[in-house]
Design a protein around this nucleic acid. Sequence first.
DNA 1: ACCTGAACACCGTTCAAGT
DNA 2: ACCTGAACACCGTTCAAGT
Lengths: 209, 209
Amino acid sequence: MSPSRKSGDSYHHGDLRRALVEAATAIVAEDQNWEFSLREVARRAGVSHNAPYRHFPEKLDLLAAVAAEGFHSLRSAMIEAAKAPKSPDDALVAIGSAYIRFGTENPARYRLMFGAALAASKAALPPLVGQAAAASRDVLAAVVADGVRQNRFAAAPGDDGEMSILALSAWATVHGLTMLIIDGLSDVEPSPSLPERVGRALLDGVRKR
Amino acid sequence: MSPSRKSGDSYHHGDLRRALVEAATAIVAEDQNWEFSLREVARRAGVSHNAPYRHFPEKLDLLAAVAAEGFHSLRSAMIEAAKAPKSPDDALVAIGSAYIRFGTENPARYRLMFGAALAASKAALPPLVGQAAAASRDVLAAVVADGVRQNRFAAAPGDDGEMSILALSAWATVHGLTMLIIDGLSDVEPSPSLPERVGRALLDGVRKR
DNA sequence: ACCTGAACACCGTTCAAGT
DNA sequence: ACCTGAACACCGTTCAAGT
C-alpha cells in the first residue's frame, strides 16, 4: 500500500475533508434543515467532535465547502439543461426551469447555499462560495448574452454595451422565485409545470417584442 | 394608577411582549446579524432568561413576530413611495426602488424577515409572517394590476385574466435582487442609484412595447 | 398571571495530551 | 500530522417554586 494511492479511495482516513462535506450534505438532505451541528457531522463521519478543526478552521468554512459544492451541482444542472435547445429562447426557458427545479427539489440544500453567505454576515462572502456562485450564474449570463447578440433579447436601456444588469435581473428573478416558492410565499400552486411556466415568464421579461 | 392605562406606556411591565420584540429588533440592527439569542433578548429587556416563554412558546415565535413587524415596515415604505407618482410606470419604479432600498439599508433585518420562514424549515410558515408578507406583496401587486388595467403592462401569456404570475415575477425580481446584493453576489457596484436603475429594469420587464 | 433559579442536554471552540 | 478527552462558556427549554 503505497501512499501514492488515489485520494478517491475512502478507507477511513486521508480524505476526512471529503467525508465531512459528504456527511454534512447527507444530514441536510435527510433533516431538510440547513442548520447542522458540527458535532453531528463529526459523529456521522466517525471521528471525534473536534477532528474537523484540522480541515476547517471554523464551522463556517465547512458550511462554505458544502455551499460551493451545491453551486457546482447547480451549474451542472444548468449546463445539462442548456445542451439540447438550439435557440436562446429555448435555452433560457430550459435553464430557468432547471434552476427552479434544482432549488425546489431540495430546498434545504438551496437555502444552505445562500445561507452560507447569510451566516457570514458582516464578513465578506467566503471566496470559495462567491466563485462557485459566479460560475453558475455565468451559465445563465452566457445564454442571455447569446440572445442579445442574436438580437432576440432586449438589453436594458441603461446597459450601454455591458449586459450585466440584464443577466443580473434574470438571475434575480429565478433566485427570488425559487426562494419565494421554498418559503411558501408564492401563492401559485407548485405544480410540476411551474418551473416551465416560470421559465417562460422569465423569457418574456427579456425578449424583444 | 388604574389598570386601564393605555398599553402604550412602557414603565417596565405589562408590555413585555412588545419590549421583547423591540429588544430583538435592536440587537439585530446593532449586531447586523439576524441570529440573536433568546437569552440576550431577555437580558436586554431586563427579565430572567425564561420570562419570554410566557409570551412566545418558542424562539421561533419571537422571530416570527420580529419578521412580521419588518414586513409591516416594508409595506409602509412601499405605500409611501407609491403616493406621489401618477402613472403606473412611475409608481412601479418608485416601489421597486423603495423595496431595494429597504432591504439593502438594513440587510440583517431583511434577512431575518425571510430567515424566519427559513428557520421554520419543514413546518408551515408562521401565519403571522405569511400574512404580513402577503400584505406587503399586495402593494406591489396592486400597482402591477393597475398597469395591466391601463394596458401599459403586458400580462404574461399563461396568465388568462389572473395576473398573479406577473405580480409574483415582479416580487421575485426585487426580492432576488435584494438578496443577491445583500449577499454580495451582485457584481454591479452598489451605488446609491442602484435601486432606481433596478426599478427601471423591473419596469422594462413588464412594460408593453 | 407572571417571574425566578436551578437543572438538562446540547452546542462551538480551545487546549493539553497522546500516537 | 492527525486525532483524542476534558474543559469552558454559551445556548434553548423544562420544571418546581416563589409572589
